[in-house]
Design a protein around this nucleic acid. Structure first.
Lengths: 146, 146
DNA sequence: GTATGTGCAAAGGTTTTGCAACTAT
DNA sequence: ATAGTTGCAAAACCTTTGCACATAC
């Protein structure tokens, strides 16, 4: 997470945001780089990464998948959901939670053949809460991301 | 995705699976490497990666976060879910789908302070379906992952 | 004037891969 | 016998960062 700072409006940042609002693909960082370079050939990939991060923190764009932390593995394969601590990145199991996720509706709305879903809860674990690492520091991480 | 092949039972693969079943942390690849090395000091990190991949494909373990594909960005920030094609990895929006996700229950079950959730549908998009890239090739990717 | 931002290039961290030797079937 | 597997090291890949110069406020 970035430090507190007073964001300026740079040409580069505006164009990146523009391009992201313009399309409805969900581009990766280097795809954004390619898009932006057509209007601004001298922009660097590092600048794109930096600004995507900043824009996401400001809540002006949304970061999909990954979120914080690396790929993890789970030896338990029976259906269960997970909850991840946004502070220490640990993952805990939710073996006893049932959620009814309307895969059929999603299929109807998109024409996809829906084969499953991934649902993960986000929050702050008891240990981190005790240490005062509250949710305030992890605001823009909120809901709906996927 | 791996090719079709007849998996053998190697000592290494068994130990990796063992260790993953033994713990209920959700280790990253290099954490698995550290765990396994205590019983098998000469195993290599590459072998760990290869076997985690294979085990996940066989459905014997579960891969969390990331799943296939890289980090993506979305210029639309109003709450909406996504669906990802397991074949071409493209992501589409589901602006009109409402899901009631019981964050309060998750909080009660874990003592986490729950600040949000990430939900993503998985499937095969119409284009890929047309090309015969059916869900059969993407089986173990199914539900519940996070 | 000064904090913020940029381009460039190098470094960082994770994951994948080529290869020759080894092993389960 | 032979297809699958391993260890090792190198490569690939994605993302972050240090720095000197530029720019917005």
């Amino acid at each position: 997470v970035q430090d507190l700072f007073k964001a300026r409006t740079s040409k580069q940042r505006q164009v990146i945001l523009d391009e992201l609002k313009r399309v409805d693909s969900h581009p990766t960082a280097d795809e954004v780089y390619l898009m932006v370079r057509q209007r601004m050939p001298r922009i660097s990939l590092g600048t794109v990464y930096r600004n995507l991060e900043i824009l996401a923190e400001q809540g002006l764009i949304q970061r999909l998948d990954g979120g914080p932390g690396r790929r993890r593995f789970d030896g338990r394969v029976e259906g269960h959901y997970h909850i991840r601590c946004l502070s220490c990145l640990r993952v805990a199991d939710l073996p006893d939670l049932r959620v009814s996720v309307p895969e059929d509706e999603a299929a109807a709305l998109t024409d996809f053949e829906v084969t499953g879903h991934a649902l993960e809860f986000l929050g702050i674990c008891p240990e981190c809460r005790r240490q005062g690492l509250g949710a305030a520091n992890h605001d823009a991480e909120a809901s709906y991301g996927g």
